[in-house]
């Protein structure tokens, strides 16, 4: 589903975000990306979103080289990829419902589709009762659930999460990770960049460990120290 072939990303400052990174993720797989601060986790995610361009190497999504997606068509690439960030990034002036509906409004969704998908997705993340609340009226964990609902409401084949639990306490973090796992069970390919070692250890999923922009380890089926 996602394939990196010898990808190198050098920032304008000369700092290497990623050095010659290669790996591939199968459809429906769940992958953790771990590593110390500055190891290149966010860089990897930005490259998939085409927010940054690699200096060399290829990134294939579903067999297509995303270098061939023109600037104009980047939005259509992003509609195939749901994203969740550490800081939630909800629209403060819109309710929970509107925030999730917004992701559908930008596509060609009809009113009927929006009315059907949004409540269903909110139920899935356990927030159907807060549909009319504004983000500031929610806890961090609840806000992240909204962000997750927004990321998956269009049923994209891929879900990326960049430190989704970075601002949350351990219990809430665990709940969010369980939701991400549920998403994978519904057939989406899920990539999670995280610092939360204890959760990674417990979930027994595939883990890629980065350090200084290179892959240190790629352990399938769980992390064993």
């Amino acid at each position: 589903m996602i394939r990196f072939k010898n990808v190198t990303k050098i920032y304008d400052t000369g700092i290497k975000g990623l050095k010659n990174v290669s790996f591939s993720v199968e459809k429906g797989e769940f992958l953790f990306i771990v590593g110390p601060s500055g190891s290149g986790k966010s860089t990897l995610i930005k490259l998939i979103l085409k927010e940054e361009e690699p200096q060399s190497g290829e990134i294939l999504i579903d067999g297509q080289n995303i270098a061939n997606v023109s600037h104009k068509n980047v939005p259509y690439l992003r509609r195939q990829i749901g994203v969740v960030f550490q800081d939630f990034r909800l629209l403060p002036n819109k309710t929970v419902y509107e925030n999730v509906a917004f992701a559908m409004q930008i596509t060609d969704a009809t009113h009927r589709e929006i009315k059907r998908n949004v409540p269903a997705t909110l139920s899935m993340v356990g927030l159907h009762k807060k549909a009319r609340s504004y983000p500031r009226q929610l806890s961090g964990g609840e806000q992240q659930r909204v962000a997750l609902a927004r990321a998956i409401v269009n049923r994209p084949p891929i879900l990326l999460a960049d430190e989704p639990t970075g601002n949350l306490d351990p219990d809430t973090s665990w709940e969010i990770m369980m939701l991400l796992s549920d998403v994978q069970k519904q057939g989406m390919t899920v990539l999670v960049a995280t610092h939360a070692w204890d959760i990674v250890d417990n979930m027994k999923k595939r883990v890629i460990a980065l350090k200084n922009g290179t892959i240190l380890r790629d352990v399938k089926g769980g992390y064993e120290n």
């Binding site: 979103l49 939005p75 690439l77 994203v83 930008i106 927004r150």
Partner: peptide
């Protein structure tokens, strides 16, 4: 945020 969610220019 709009651009991340896939909104066109």
């Amino acid at each position: 945020i709009m651009k991340y969610v896939g909104a066109t220019d």
